[in-house]
């Protein structure tokens, strides 16, 4: 099955590799930045183009992988769906709940599969926490806490640092945790959030979010794009008789590389040194869905994660809890 990669930055390269590993053929690599498209295309023996919209209609392409800035997702999803292409879309599915609804409707009407890359569901450490919890190790869970973050990412044209485009650390980064917490503990009742967002002395954001689940469980989610370096993930679940805890700072590989002179920091992709990458697992899930299986992440899941993230942004703005 031929795939078009739309957006050839860090995640585009990652997904091209995973797609290729899963048996897809990378047919065309599209990016507004000609050099990035050409570089990725060369590495995968594909064609390069700057016509990102055009690739959605290519007859030889059966699926597209969308790795562009979030506000552009909906346009590509609609185009791809119109042309009957299956879609692998990087998270967040779209910039607003309304856009998610349009995206889901477009895919449904066209009868194509719309997969969203909520990759944390495939991370072995998070899956192990969920398995332990489901096996009753902590007893009845009552509390969860996660941390995700590090240095503020820039991205092509600094789009991550443009709040209107990315939605900042809450919308772009913590959406992973919102999705996983909902996957592990069920639906969210209400959200409270605070953010510290600054442009001086440099662009930075630190977000503190509490989710009250319908089950009563309290989940506290911390996100940082305010650290001077690095990237870390932490997770904790406490229950009536036990506790589970994970900290990526305390794992098998620690690599600390100098920044490339003259270039801003890119997105740091956390590495789990495991037999099969979680990114591979999500591509396998996408592939299996195309062959009839049920995927771990549904389009509705992706929409719910966006709803939680939007509620957190609203709460941070108003200083009041937002009930979903």
């Amino acid at each position: 099955m031929n795939v078009a990669i739309i957006g050839c930055g860090g995640m585009g390269r990652m997904h091209a590799q995973m797609a290729a590993n899963s048996g897809f053929a990378i047919k065309v690599c599209a990016d507004l930045n000609q050099a990035k498209a050409a570089e990725l295309a060369r590495d995968f023996g594909a064609e390069a183009t700057t016509d990102c919209q055009g690739v959605c209609g290519r007859a030889e392409v059966a699926a597209v992988a969308i790795n562009t800035p979030t506000p552009t997702h909906l346009e590509f999803i609609k185009l791809a769906a119109q042309h009957g292409k299956h879609i692998f879309c990087e998270k967040p599915l779209a910039r607003t709940e309304q856009e998610c609804k349009e995206a889901i409707a477009a895919a449904r009407d066209a009868g194509v599969k719309l997969f969203t890359g909520h990759v944390v569901r495939y991370f072995q450490e998070f899956e192990t926490i969920k398995q332990q919890m489901d096996a009753g190790v902590v007893g009845k869970p009552g509390f969860a806490k996660t941390f995700r973050g590090g240095i503020s990412p820039a991205g092509e044209g600094n789009w991550f640092r443009d709040f209107e485009k990315s939605g900042g650390v809450i919308f772009d980064c913590l959406i992973h945790d919102f999705d996983w917490i909902r996957y592990a503990f069920g639906d969210v009742e209400r959200v409270f959030s605070q953010t510290m967002r600054r442009s001086e002395p440099e662009v930075m954001e630190y977000a503190l979010v509490t989710l009250r689940m319908k089950s009563g469980v309290i989940a506290h989610v911390i996100g940082s794009w305010a650290h001077p370096s690095g990237f870390a993930v932490k997770a904790e679940v406490c229950g009536s008789k036990g506790m589970l805890h994970f900290d990526s700072n305390d794992t098998s590989i620690q690599t600390n590389l100098r920044e490339t002179p003259g270039e801003g920091p890119g997105v740091i992709v956390p590495g789990s040194p495991v037999d099969v990458s979680p990114y591979q697992l999500e591509w396998e899930d996408f592939k299996n869905w195309l062959e009839g299986a049920t995927p771990r992440v549904s389009p509705q899941d992706a929409l719910e994660a966006v709803r939680i993230a939007e509620a957190a942004l609203k709460s941070a703005e108003t200083g009041a809890p937002v009930t979903l």
Binding site: G142, F143, Y206, L208, T210
Partner: peptide, 28 residues
């Protein structure tokens, strides 16, 4: 209560979250 998740503000807009808990198991 045995779990509290607090969001605080201090003078000047300093934002703080705090977890006040009895969430560590006896085996901790």
């Amino acid at each position: 209560d045995d779990i509290g998740a607090l969001h605080l503000e201090m003078d000047g807009g300093l934002v703080v979250s705090h977890i006040a808990s009895w969430n560590r198991p006896q085996s901790f």
